[in-house]
Design a protein around this nucleic acid. Sequence first.
RNA 1: GCCGCUGUGGUGGAAUUGGCAGACACGUACGACUCAAAAUCGUAUGGCCUCACGGCCAUGUCGGUUCGACCCCGACCAGCGGCACCA
Length: 967
Amino acid sequence: MLKYNPSEIEKKWQRYWETKKFYDTKDSVEGKKNYMLLTEFAYPSGNLHIGHWYAFSLPDIRARYLRMKGYNVMYPTGFDAFGLPAENAAIKNNIHPEVWTKKNITYMTKQLKSMGATFDWSRMVSTMDPDYYQWTQWMFLKFYEKGLAYRALTSVNWCPKDKTVLANEQAEGGKCDRCGTEVMQKELSQWMFKITQFADDLVDGLKDLDWQETAKLGQINWIGRSEGAEISFPLTKKHKVLIIHGYTGSPDENKYPWIKNKLEELGYEVDIPRLPNTNNPDQNEQVNYVLKNYKIDENTILFGHSLGAVVALKVLEKVGKPIAKLVLGAMAMDPGATDSRLKNDPRPNWRNFSWDFDFEKIKKLTYEVVVLSDLKERKRIFFMKYLSEKLSARLIEGHSVKEHFTGPTEPMILNNLINSIKVFTTRPDTIFGATFLVVSPEMAQKWINTHGDLAPPEVKKYVQDSLKKTELQRQENREKTGVDTRAKAINPATGKEIPIWVADYVLGHYGTGAIMAVPSHDERDRAFAEKFSLPISDAPLRDKSEIMKLLKDKGVGMPHKTYRLHDWILSRQRYWGVPIPMINCKTCGYQPVPEKELPIKLPPLKDFKPADDGRSPLAKAEKWLKVKCPKCGNDAERETDTMDTFVDSSWYFMRYTDPKNKKEFASKKNMANWLPVPMYSGGAEHTTMHLLYSRFIAKALHSLGYVDFNEPFLSRMNRGIILGPDNQKMSKSRGNVIDPDVEVKKYGADAVRMYLAFMGPYEQGGPWSPGGINGVYRFLNRIWYLVSGISYNKDKNGGNSNEYRDLDIAIHKAIKNIGDDIEKLAFNTCVSELMKLLNAFEQAARDGYKIQNTKYKILLLLLAPFAPHLAEELWQTVLKNKKSIHLESWPEYNQEMLSEEKIKLVVQVNGRLRDTLDVKRGISENEAKELALKSENVKKHIEGGVKKVIYVKDRIINLVVGIDLTK
RNA sequence: GCCGCUGUGGUGGAAUUGGCAGACACGUACGACUCAAAAUCGUAUGGCCUCACGGCCAUGUCGGUUCGACCCCGACCAGCGGCACCA
């Protein structure tokens, strides 16, 4: 008898399966349902670790099982090939990232093949392949077209060591997640994806997904939706409001008298110039009229409505001095661009209005710009968005407003005219206890930018100092700091005047960047109030909806949602990534690369180290860099930043469905064959990154009509982590690393796979136990000897089915339980079942039964997904089957076999076990009672007399004695 | 601080979801084989009392609901994870 030699048989069968292309998946197969089993593809770090085995070999059990159940199963894999570690390793070893990465891919492919998994290598994708990243670039362009990708100046996480920007998700706890260096805040212009546009959908969409609760909650926490209200606290400083009416308008027109009246009630001074020639306006004439007759300074709030907004912008541009606030309501559009009504307007002066503004200049002249959209015409909304982007303005979309703001009362305008500090709160019901306001240093800085002269020096100093600090430094010091701005606001609920402070415990990037402080209800506010002796009010709570109604009626508060989630900053100042397909032209600004020029290939570069000025190494690729502007044809430069690799990896599963497509990232038809992914397993560390990004990309593509699904992953299993034998995280320094190659050499791939399956629940992981894998290895040996020890044609006497009944029952139970448990991904209990089944076989053999060939076959079929090599070897070599075991069907179980005729009935007295009876299945309560009462041990315990009998058929009979049931 | 998860033998873990707690393994002890060891096979293995039949205790702690609770409810303790000066 030959010994079980895994390394020999495993190589043999791996070659056999590969040559026969067993696992190259067809797009569809007649009569079979498609099933894509997705696991996160690997980063080509250079070596497979035990975690990879856990990630890939366990889902493979399910893949093999589903194949046997008749599915057309795709089990794809690939490589997430771009990224920082490749570049760092490359720099360290003085080898090109591409060479390094390709070498790793080759080596890891070999390692992956040693698992004996059913990977479909014909569909392998690698994100560094231009055929792949051309579509990553294409998606960027499509997103750019629709405003889902944009460039903006933001405060970003900057790693001084890696010299690159990091997403919030990559800078958790204020440390770079690659190198651990403390992250700094830096103001940079970056490309971003508008993931916040889908924030609600990303939260609400989870409801219908079959994901682990922990994964769902992780995302919900990360998105951090808070529902509350945005409330305006008017400043006590009385401003002058200058209202510029629109085309054919006048100070007497609809809402103006009402607004004027209301503002004056609040103590504002209001001017509404009666503009000359309102029915046939001339821009210069109107602008000059305003400039001549009205004083405009830092106390002025300027409001322009419709065509008046155009006048207002020109007025401000000409004044050239800061004003308090600029409000543009329902602004008329550039006639050349969109509005045919204007274009065809017969009045020549109208058309001669200039829409050419120096937006940068205007931005610097205002502390705050608000754009009010009337939300009635789509073109107009588009223009309002454009305008608010140009001016970095708050865009307020009107709800239930009169068309073009022509109602006799317009609270939305009034509310936004008042110069106020807006706060976000989840507790509007505490507003009566709000005794001061606190603004963040970021918000204060904006105000200082335009009104620097007015700010007290200690405020300037405090703001400067705190903005220098990193996020981490600001959070380290929990002791409250802050200064009084000396400005005052009115609490709109109490009407009382309250101070405004600036303090760094208020964050600039959350909510409005300012809070109403309620020391009586908020610990932080209390600590602050106590430290600086600010008033604390014990005003009682009010009913939330009552408060909201009050604030709404006053026009100072609206329900509002805020998110912790920020837009996805995807620019990376790095070489080893996908170039962002944009061109920067001095005259035309950023222009998209024409689609037909894709892919923009990463230029070969010898020196790919990041520059000290923070510019991407791509800036050194001079030939590549210099291009013509696609719009004006003048000299221009390519964008030198590359994309965050999470962009690459957020759509790779779509490519699996159509990996060779040259015309699309994947055809809708092919995607329909496989997507959305029914089952995705991977690491819990990706909950708030990869999984969230992928969901966003899918939703964005869906909204643009390129994919038919809105959620990419219907179910998700986060797998656990394999720890070292010492129950600690594996690490070289601890010396507790288990090398899968070593284990495979010692015990074989089958044993490694099966032990990983056996060690515990998949979502839990656990410590690697050398004894544990040895136990599994022993089990495989026992199978080997059991099956290869049989001799044929000796089962002639085995026809007596009664003799085989115990074994048959064990077999049928195993078929059912293993199938059920694989479906549940409860691999550990599957292995237990297989062990029990082997015990039953061995018991039968020990009892002298001759075991039929067909029974061994079932044993091997059940084993096949778990130990595919051993099962194949015994199936073909020992049992002499011509066809591979992996082309066989999963065996059927016989329901009758599962319900044994004889069962053990548990007899309890007062719920305590007193005896077990061997009885026939299905006996009646009376029969059971009679039998139970005969039991000697039961008799001893029922002396008080049986008061009540609980009978659960085929399970238990419980005799209740001496308990007063009337109580 | 908020949210969530988990507590079962010496160890990893089972338990048909309210019906025999500890399946299946690891480990340990003893035995068989062996000159011996390893490997393999067999027996035992939650604790306490008992020669035994059997009994009592036992699923983090305390209490409750129930004929009956690892499972449901309440309070607490411990560990892990996510978020965190997020208003």
